[in-house]
Design a protein around this nucleic acid. Sequence first.
RNA 1: GGCCCGGUAGCUCAAUUGGUUAGAGUACUGGACUGUCGAUCCAGUGGUUGCGGGUUCGAGUCCCGUCCGGGUCGCCA
Length: 597
Amino acid sequence: MYRTHTCGELRSDDVEQTVILCGWVDSTRDHGKGLFIDLRDRYGVTQAVVLPDRGEELLAKSKQIRNEFVLKIEGTVHRRPAGQENPRHQSGEIEVHIDSLEVLNRCEVPPFLPSQPEMPGEDLRLKHRYLDLRRRGMQTTLELRSKIIKTMRDYFEEHQFIDVETPILGRSTPEGARDYLVPSRVHPGSFYALPQSPQLYKQIMMVAGYDRYVQVARCFRDEDLRADRQPEFTQLDMEMSFVDSDDVIGMVDGLMARLVKQLRGVDLPLPLPRMTYDEAMRRFGHDAPDLRYGMEIEDCTDLAAEAEFRVFRSVAEAGNFVRGINARQAADRYSRKGIDELTEFVQHDFGAKGLAWFKVTEEGTLASPIAKNFPDTLLERFKERMGGEPGDLILFIADSWDTSCRALNGLRRRLASELKLYDPDEMHFSWVVEFPMFERDEETHRWVAMHHPFTAPRDEDIRQLKDSPEHCRAKAYDLVVNGYEAGGGTIRIHDQAIQQDVFGLLGMSPEEAQGRFGFLLDALKYGAPPHGGIALGIDRVVMLFGGLENIRDCIAFPKTQRAMDLMTEAPNTVAKEQLKELGLNLAQPPAQNPTKN
RNA sequence: GGCCCGGUAGCUCAAUUGGUUAGAGUACUGGACUGUCGAUCCAGUGGUUGCGGGUUCGAGUCCCGUCCGGGUCGCCA
């Protein structure tokens, strides 16, 4: 028998029991005639003691022990001497007096210790992920992840969903993100694509009559990485038949309440609040606003139009916008230099032309280098519109709608973080609904689907599909948590005529559409029920419930910003024979393996 | 692809606006110690300052290039 207990479960009730524990050496404290060993596994840490009276042999053996050795110890559980309990460990009231000890495996001197107080560099953590995953923080996160997925599966099972796996090797559909491609050996020159999501398959499941489908699905997108984006990620993907937006949203509301109850022991009030896309852009400049704090955008374009200040007036006259936010009581927190940094930030990151600012003085007036360009009465109206109180810092962006949205959202997030306007433990759930059906492609000026081309328009917008597509809103909904898009979904088009109209708007002929999505269009002809669904980003949900700042910490084996796995050194070159078998020639010789530097 | 930050001992960091032999904590090695829990005390090993080039009497420090890690804009239906 390897062990009778784990390193996290012994308590004072177990005193006098003979036990066997296995685990890794977290640390040792050598006192000469005896020594202490903290033995660790994923359940906890138990202190084991080699007492001075247990003989030379055991003592000598125990002195060979080093950090991260794998041990099996046998001994008896004892209550610790009074006053020597360690409240930092759950097993801190007891210790195991070692009778015999076996080194199951040695460990080379590790590049870092799982229990060391300083966090090692991320590249080192990823290279030696097996050591990193021994850290308590990673264990906690992976346990949380497992619990979240279990809760999701239980919930959907209770609601009659059926878990169906869909192919990983699929077909490239040139909409959306860049595909990861897999060459076919059997069909030289042809490629599979890894799924960006199981979107089309789950719709086909609906046609097939499996009216409630769910899957924990791995998805792949070959785009640049971010703190919250990995090339390979996991979605909780679901789809339902005979439903409209409210049904899908309600189902996810229930799931979120279940998760919050299960993981935080709190009742989440339902239904979750909803806001339209237009309102989100107007009030927050972003389709996934962080609602843990206020600092909403106010539109002052009408006031700007009255100003002699040319920057403001010309923007207003050109049909653009002067909008601002009020950072309450932040006037003292941002010096002239600090505001210069904010200016550079909005110019550089969002292409804003500039940043106009006012500080509300003790006397209640607006102070700013540009204040002299405004009559006092107008300044007063700006202040009133922005709700300015003494000590506030008011910031304005005068620019196009898009740029002002982007810049103000950027400012809002940055200021909230710097001013600590939110409790990092708090979670705020909401929905953003009624997204536009289409948006203009900047380069080609053609309409492109904002979500995907199968998204259904709102019933009341179908009439204007052809005449004014820009006003056409979709049955689309995003779940937003703390300023992150945690998930998104739509009701799909099940009407052939509408689907063809949408394709037409997107500049796709029926033949072209047939070529790209023929299998889906065919399926939709054979009795497709009204249906819709949603996909939740599980990695992000874990990140949010875990209060973490990047998605890599939620994934056992993540990739770096350059999409490398530092442990396995994937991707890597392959043998010439493998390429030949696939009928592939490299246009360029492969680059030197970058990790070798 | 652009911009920003970082790379110094195994690890985490320091090193005066370019100036002596690049330091500290920790880990590691050896020794001491009967109750520690970030054990303590003593001693020791450990460096191509990511890599390549340049400026200079002199470069960890300045310049150019490059690689790696991170953040971000573009991108991500």
